[in-house]
Computed example of a mutant assay.
Amino acid sequence: MMLDDEQMHKELTVGEVAGRSGLAVSAIHFYESKGLIASRRNPGNQRRYGRDVLRRVAIIKVAQRLGIPLAEVGVALATLPQSRTPTAKDWARLSAKWKLELDARIEKMLQLRDQLNECIGCGCLSIENCKLRNPMDTLAEQGAGPRLLDPE
């Protein structure tokens, strides 16, 4: 199949994708190996990417900054049509779930922070009512003395 000049112009080499996205070529190859982005091979067996891959890479990088596992990013990207640049509407749909997860993690971290403030300075982390390491003083049931808190 012959490609016209317009189609050839729209495609990017792996080096161009890397340069425009600020990533290493190896990262682009890694994302492709995980099925997060796709390329085609030209007659010279070189990878060529549609311009839509730049937006997909941007989505991947934002999701990674949010702590979203790549497997979950892949599931989300699989809901998008191939060879079409993700739109703002697509992003709103993809990010809605991630926002809820991020809010839940933030809430957990705030609770942890507040619990840490309650025992700061105690030094032992096993005092009665320690919410971080000894909630409800469960270690007291084992008697006096040191205990291995994290057996793993």
Score class of each variant (00 low, 15 high):
residue 44 G to F: 11
residue 38 A to D: 13
residue 69 P to L: 03
residue 35 G to V: 10
residue 77 L to I: 01
residue 123 G to H: 12
residue 57 V to L: 02
residue 143 G to A: 07
residue 97 K to M: 04
residue 92 A to F: 04
residue 81 P to C: 03
residue 120 I to Y: 13
residue 106 I to W: 14
residue 41 R to Y: 05
residue 112 L to T: 09
residue 83 S to R: 12
residue 78 A to H: 03
residue 107 E to I: 06
residue 131 K to A: 13
residue 15 G to F: 04
residue 45 N to D: 15
residue 47 R to K: 15
residue 136 M to H: 12
residue 8 M to I: 12
residue 104 A to Y: 08
residue 14 V to D: 00
residue 50 G to V: 05
residue 76 A to P: 00
residue 22 G to E: 11
residue 129 N to K: 13
residue 147 R to V: 12
residue 112 L to V: 04
residue 65 R to E: 14
residue 88 A to S: 08
residue 48 R to L: 03
residue 140 A to K: 15
residue 15 G to K: 10
residue 26 S to I: 09
residue 80 L to T: 00
residue 122 C to I: 07
residue 83 S to G: 03
residue 80 L to I: 01
residue 147 R to T: 08
residue 11 E to I: 01
residue 150 D to R: 10
residue 5 D to K: 12
residue 6 E to Y: 04
residue 100 L to W: 04
residue 113 R to L: 06
residue 51 R to Q: 15
residue 109 M to Q: 15
residue 147 R to W: 12
residue 89 K to P: 00
residue 75 V to Q: 13
residue 116 L to A: 14
residue 73 V to C: 03
residue 55 R to E: 13
residue 51 R to N: 14
residue 21 S to F: 04
residue 135 P to V: 04
residue 15 G to Q: 10
residue 91 W to Q: 07
residue 56 R to I: 03
residue 25 V to D: 06
residue 43 P to F: 09
residue 134 N to L: 08
residue 6 E to D: 07
residue 57 V to A: 01
residue 32 E to Q: 14
residue 103 D to Q: 15
residue 28 I to F: 03
residue 141 E to P: 00
residue 117 N to D: 12
residue 95 S to M: 10
residue 137 D to G: 03
residue 31 Y to K: 11
residue 29 H to W: 11
residue 17 V to T: 02
residue 68 I to T: 15
residue 108 K to W: 06
residue 138 T to K: 09
residue 29 H to K: 13
residue 38 A to E: 14
residue 115 Q to F: 05
residue 63 A to F: 11
residue 18 A to M: 05
residue 64 Q to K: 15
residue 135 P to G: 06
residue 49 Y to N: 11
residue 134 N to F: 09
residue 40 R to K: 11
residue 73 V to M: 03
residue 57 V to R: 07
residue 22 G to I: 10
residue 125 L to I: 08
residue 4 D to H: 08
residue 106 I to A: 12
residue 127 I to G: 15
residue 67 G to A: 11
residue 43 P to N: 11
residue 78 A to S: 15
residue 29 H to E: 14
residue 113 R to V: 07
residue 33 S to C: 07
residue 65 R to F: 09
residue 26 S to H: 14
residue 113 R to H: 08
residue 33 S to P: 09
residue 54 L to H: 11
residue 11 E to H: 10
residue 143 G to H: 09
residue 120 I to P: 00
residue 35 G to Q: 12
residue 112 L to C: 07
residue 28 I to Y: 01
residue 137 D to Q: 09
residue 149 L to H: 11
residue 20 R to P: 00
residue 43 P to G: 04
residue 99 K to P: 00
residue 128 E to M: 04
residue 45 N to C: 07
residue 101 E to K: 12
residue 73 V to T: 14
residue 132 L to N: 05
